[in-house]
Design a protein around this nucleic acid. Structure first.
Lengths: 345, 345
DNA sequence: TCAGCCGTGGGCAACGTTTTCCAAATGTGT
DNA sequence: ACACATTTGGAAAACGTTGCCCACGGCTGA
């Protein structure tokens, strides 16, 4: 025989029998609820340890709680989300909640599947990181289970949000580049048509911030936006497109570090050197930006803090569903590195 | 009032009442089990759609299945694991299973918490990617729920495994470097003392493969191993250590791409250029290795395929728990790029 | 015509836990 | 010693789903 018949799981009934008490008492000890004497507690604890009992979450769920927090991440490859996740798990440590995550893959359909799967599994709270779902879907979810949305700028009354101040972040970058003497500053943006998302998604807000900052610095005529995608390939293609301009930009602001990577690759292939020929700035300050040989100027939006705050808000929301929704906006910070310098001449 | 009282979830009873049938019939339709006429099916389907009913997984779990596959990832930052996850979810698409993952953080304690949480949640199958837990723990898990272990070389009779042939991979790298003319080829390894893991963990097998290959090429005397950790910092520190050698190596094989990143940084700081002064090879062929400005020579272990195979094995294992355990070993491939070249002189 | 057989739909118990209620036991103040 | 409050432990009913049964009706074949 290759593997034993899977031994029946130890249940609360087994523990009760083994400790010569009722299941009620065991349950009280488990939840350390009132109504069990210290002596009983000790006895039950011992039985639990001896039998290696672990409560079955499915059954607990049927009575209301699963001690599980679901986290929807759009993309496991973006290290910024890893920072957020670190902050989250840090904030949820020692709370008795277990964090499980699912990947939405930046697809509306897959994202809906993941979030509904989490609801179906009776999770006690949800954290949705940079979701692309419609506001209506988000509100429907949030009405069912306490929810915090990270990295999106809507001001729902139903769910809390934590986001980076992307508008300010874009201003930081433009100000930095203008300060270095640049005027032809282009933006590589993530193409977006949906009007709701156009207002709420970080990329849209960054783009708006860029336009606004350009105008503020009297560079309204130099506004130049290429719409691609927030991917390595998007940065590559967008940059190639920019290089065909009659007067190519002297600096490119990419809305995300990965996009900047694609841009760097396109520039290397075109034989242009950074920052001598052209300056590049990213957004997110991911580990790769800090990496020496790359040394990308970027905007740090403090993923860990965002995650930690989201965790805190979620715990508050679970504790009381009736307080008004909070909307936190964290201030970003420019990290100037070696991919930005004054333009030639 | 800020948010409505969370509406009671629609249950199978509601559907049954709405369709004027029994819950049994609804259940049959849900699982498309035999014993329901086409007419009934249609009626029930309509009721389900009208009410927006979704089965509650917790209750299903109590009857045996949760349609959930749990994936333990050690570290969400390593893009290689993202490849594995892509392969996994690809292989599990359209099976009705939902994938949820948890992070073990390369900590024995946290990893145990995550895996047990998955068991507690009644998951139908588990995929453990590069776990660091003891073999005993893994077998205990696998006895409870169908389990596939990815990236570890033990040959358990209880769980299936899928791994890269790390021994062969190390041979590929050494052969490549020797072919370029290198003799002083050092290895940066992950420090490991636990004897079981020493035999089973990929890093250990890579190290063994390195030693073996060096001997094969008559370079037994040149074997030089620095033990640090498989992190960026580990690569940085290990490389600094190697540079203090009386006769520093002309080539460094790092057991992972991230380690190579740290190495590159240390070399850049030391004013050495790659590959003119020293060659560097990594392992995993992560996206960053392929990235133009880096262009790291690496070993591709086909994360997607590993994941897809793990998914297939798991589905087989769920279908039949009694077939003997399979142990797949996938052949890696060297991807030579611009960080390796013949040594000076 | 009738025994036997399917096919169809439903009743009901079970899964493991929490929680409400209740009874018994214990303690307190006279 | 007695009434009364408090503490302690347990019985039992949920929670939502599945799957084993069974009953009923219509058909088949002799």
């Amino acid at each position: 025989m290759i593997r034993d018949a899977p031994a029946r799981r130890v249940t609360i009934v087994d523990v009760a029998r083994h400790a010569h008490v009722s299941t009620t008492t065991v349950s009280k000890v488990l939840r350390n609820a009132a109504g069990a004497s210290p002596a009983m507690r000790a006895r039950v604890q011992r039985a639990i340890a001896e039998l290696g009992y672990r409560p079955y979450t499915g059954a607990r769920g049927m009575r209301g709680r699963t001690f599980t927090i679901g986290v929807m991440l759009p993309d496991i490859r973006n290290p910024f989300f890893a920072d957020v996740l670190d902050g989250l798990t840090g904030g949820l440590r020692d709370t008795g909640y277990q964090v499980l995550h699912g990947t939405g893959r930046n697809g509306e359909h897959i994202e809906a599947r993941v979030t509904e799967a989490m609801v179906d599994r009776g999770m006690d709270g949800l954290i949705l990181v940079a979701p692309i779902s419609s506001g209506a879907h988000l509100e429907r979810i949030a009405r069912t289970v306490p929810t915090v949305v990270v990295g999106r700028h809507g001001r729902s009354t139903i769910y809390d949000t934590v986001a980076d101040d992307d508008h300010a972040g874009a201003h930081l970058v433009v100000a930095h580049l203008v300060g270095l003497g640049h005027r032809r500053i282009a933006l590589i943006d993530h193409h977006e048509t949906n009007p709701v998302r156009l207002a709420e998604m970080p990329n849209a807000v960054r783009a708006a911030g860029y336009r606004d900052a350009m105008r503020t610095h009297g560079l309204a005529d130099e506004i130049d936006v290429v719409s691609t995608t927030y991917t390595h390939d998007g940065g590559y293609l967008g940059t190639r497109q920019l290089l065909t301009r009659p007067a190519p930009p002297t600096a490119v602001f990419t809305g995300a570090d990965i996009v900047a990577m694609g841009a760097l690759q396109a520039l290397a292939e075109a034989g242009l050197s950074v920052p001598a020929d052209i300056s590049i700035a990213g957004y997110d300050n991911t580990a790769i930006a800090a990496f020496g040989p790359i040394s990308l100027t970027s905007v740090d939006q403090a993923g860990q803090q965002i995650g930690a705050n989201a965790a805190r808000l979620l715990l508050d929301r679970i504790a009381d569903r009736h307080t008004p929704a909070s909307h936190l906006k964290l201030t970003p910070r420019l990290v100037a590195r070696r991919t930005t310098a004054p333009p030639r001449l």
